[in-house]
Design a protein around this nucleic acid. Sequence first.
DNA 1: CTGCATCCGACGCGATACTG
DNA 2: CAGTATCGCGTCGGATGCAG
Lengths: 235, 235
Amino acid sequence: MNHGYSQFCPVAKATELLCERWTLIVIRELVAGGRHFNELRRGLPRMSPTLLARRLRQLVEYGVVTKHPERGGQQAYALTQSGLELAPLIEALGIWGHRWVGSRLQDGDLDAGLLMWDIRRGVDGSCMPEGRIVVTVELHDAPEGMRQWWLVCDDGAVDLCLEDPGHEVDILVQSPLRVLTEVWVCHTSLQSALDSGALRVLGSEALTRVFSRWFVGSSIARAGAASLLTNPIAA
Amino acid sequence: MNHGYSQFCPVAKATELLCERWTLIVIRELVAGGRHFNELRRGLPRMSPTLLARRLRQLVEYGVVTKHPERGGQQAYALTQSGLELAPLIEALGIWGHRWVGSRLQDGDLDAGLLMWDIRRGVDGSCMPEGRIVVTVELHDAPEGMRQWWLVCDDGAVDLCLEDPGHEVDILVQSPLRVLTEVWVCHTSLQSALDSGALRVLGSEALTRVFSRWFVGSSIARAGAASLLTNPIAA
DNA sequence: CTGCATCCGACGCGATACTG
DNA sequence: CAGTATCGCGTCGGATGCAG
């Protein structure tokens, strides 16, 4: 017996491929726009490169992902049609997870680097005014070396730095890691985090108002929160 | 590190629970109506009872399944609200699997006992005329002892036997295991299997005509085939 | 018969280090 | 940057046993 289920059922055949450890998380990264090996790794900090390589190879083999070389020796991964059709499935899984296991965030699930990486690609750049806006995030209880971050927004594009890029800071965010994470995954509203005083946003009034529209939460979490509104949990 | 992903993303949290080995297949069995431990086992012939017990315990712990004793010392498992909300997800997974990995049926995926068990609960009993109808299935290339089956239909209910119940046979089906499986999962149409001569349905003309409406294929495979019609794979 | 618990062997996985 | 090499451990599968 290999790793299969020895079942003809289409659910079992799909599960054989998709529900091996890490596979769906890798696909989530690809759906979110990851293209290169080490770019994917940033969204998968606890996955060993060996296993990521193996999973990508499997996905290519099953026709879910393509891999082709770019100039400079880089390899570019992309979802095929069959992979793109997994996007609604990932979203449904996220909605279910948000609704039913979202409150089970253990301390071990908190990760400052992962959070900031997800924020970098998830904020709504179209909200920001023209020109360069620098947002500093201070996570005072994060591990040493992961406490201060800079998000440099320039015409919709966002850069993430762990070292001071030297620009003037426009918005300063201060929060415990857990609070910022819970706001980002739409488990707590930004407003209630502000009201409680756990999270602070400092800057000009105009910019702090923009912040609340810019910092909307990860797209998957937003979908989960939206489905909660239309379909509340029965008491 | 335990078995988690150390990620706050709702997809990762859902995956931690749902995408462990066998978990989704167990839920599929519950969605399909399985209630008791050994009833579930019939749909999971390659899963060890130890692991099934462990998975059920996990699902109860996460509030996806409830377990309560019935008269006679039996335990009844049932999906909670959160478990019921996984049904569309399972279906979507089945549709994807049918579309993209359905043709990857290896010989090891064929299982006469599992097929007949799935047929037993998947046929459309409402098509059958009043009174008792006995359908015999002969899978001549199945393993010794799994070659002849009786489906006794009585007012919508269907009984599956591996030994001759002694009634008169109304419909006789003869087929290789692979052909009947592929028809059941809607990978081959019943008509083309009949035309090729691989599959034979013997009996009165009226009953063999009923058979084609009765033997419609597993519900998950039907959903997959239907989605193929409305959304064909681009060439 | 149902619903597990226990033991053991195999292998998938994680961590770390290293290479073209 | 994009992986491969190696090794130890944990989890899974299979067989067996057993209580209600």
